[in-house]
Design a binder for these strands. Structure first.
Lengths: 150, 150
DNA sequence: TTATCTAGTAACTATCATAGTTACGTAATA
DNA sequence: TATTACGTAACTATGATAGTTACTAGATAA
């Protein structure tokens, strides 16, 4: 039925490219607004309305930023979200890493590389992908949240 | 029903990140094998079996490379696929661009940026994304198909 | 001429990631 | 004690991708 069952040499995959993913945008959007008025506490409902999405989605995304120590949240009356530290100490790399995405997906399913060509190919490309991710991070580290809303 | 209908300030999106996408891998895999034996003509069925996928998928992906002038294909008896030029003249950037993917997706749906903050944010991030894609391309241009299978 | 082989492509299905949504538990406070 | 807001599970809807079937067009061998 499926051709790839016929061949044990399971195909390996890399991906650069983009994902249909608005988490990064939502995170940056929110952080930028917070940087402009750091003392204001915002509820997920406020943020969702401003960003045109749903409070649960907001809590989901900002939860990653909380885990990464970029935001703090408080429950109950007068609760909500605020920056955990000065916005000039938060870089785009912090945000990117907080969202736990990776530029490179070298599939785990890399099994038997029968031919040496495939092994070589895999290693070469993996090295290049590492280079690329490193330079991506360097570029993101160079910009803080404050700078993107000046 | 949908909150984003309540707010005209339609949210804009960027994406870095990766897509679940094996086209790049299939393309590189195939090109690397062709570089090793440039005179051999390969059918989509051969390639599919070796890559563990389906001939139609192969023709779909390689079709992009043909449009980009990296491969040629011939129909009929003894037809199939081969390199359109020397593999040391094909860089990873050629392949990446042939597949018509873009690292950056600054959504077309960027409508009204009501607040100036959003305009600034959008412009800043777009600039950074351009930087990143440029350096990605530079890195990919630096490696040829021949080099990834040495 | 005819059979065969191969690319090109449309159309459909299956799978998966994501976002959106509802619902409810937990914690804080007026 | 009622209210507010986060935390999170569970479900649905949507869209991208790959896989698959089936067909057409073109090229060659017999």
């Amino acid at each position: 039925m499926q051709l790839h069952l016929l061949h044990e040499d399971d195909f390996f995959k890399w991906d650069i490219i983009l994902k249909k993913n608005s988490r990064l945008s939502l995170a940056l959007h929110t952080l930028a607004h917070m940087a402009n008025a750091p003392d204001k506490i915002r509820t997920s409902a406020d943020i969702a309305e401003h960003a045109g999405t749903n409070p649960v989605v907001v809590r989901r995304v900002l939860g990653h930023l909380r885990l990464a120590g970029l935001l703090v949240s408080e429950k109950g009356h007068a609760g909500g979200w605020r920056l955990a530290r000065s916005p000039d100490k938060i870089t785009l790399a912090d945000v990117y890493l907080a969202l736990d995405e990776s530029l490179i997906s070298s599939s785990d399913e890399v099994k038997s590389h029968n031919c040496s060509l495939e092994r070589a190919l895999h290693n070469r490309v993996a090295d290049i992908m590492s280079d690329i991710e490193e330079s991506l991070l360097d570029r993101l580290k160079a910009t803080t949240i404050v700078e993107i809303c000046e």
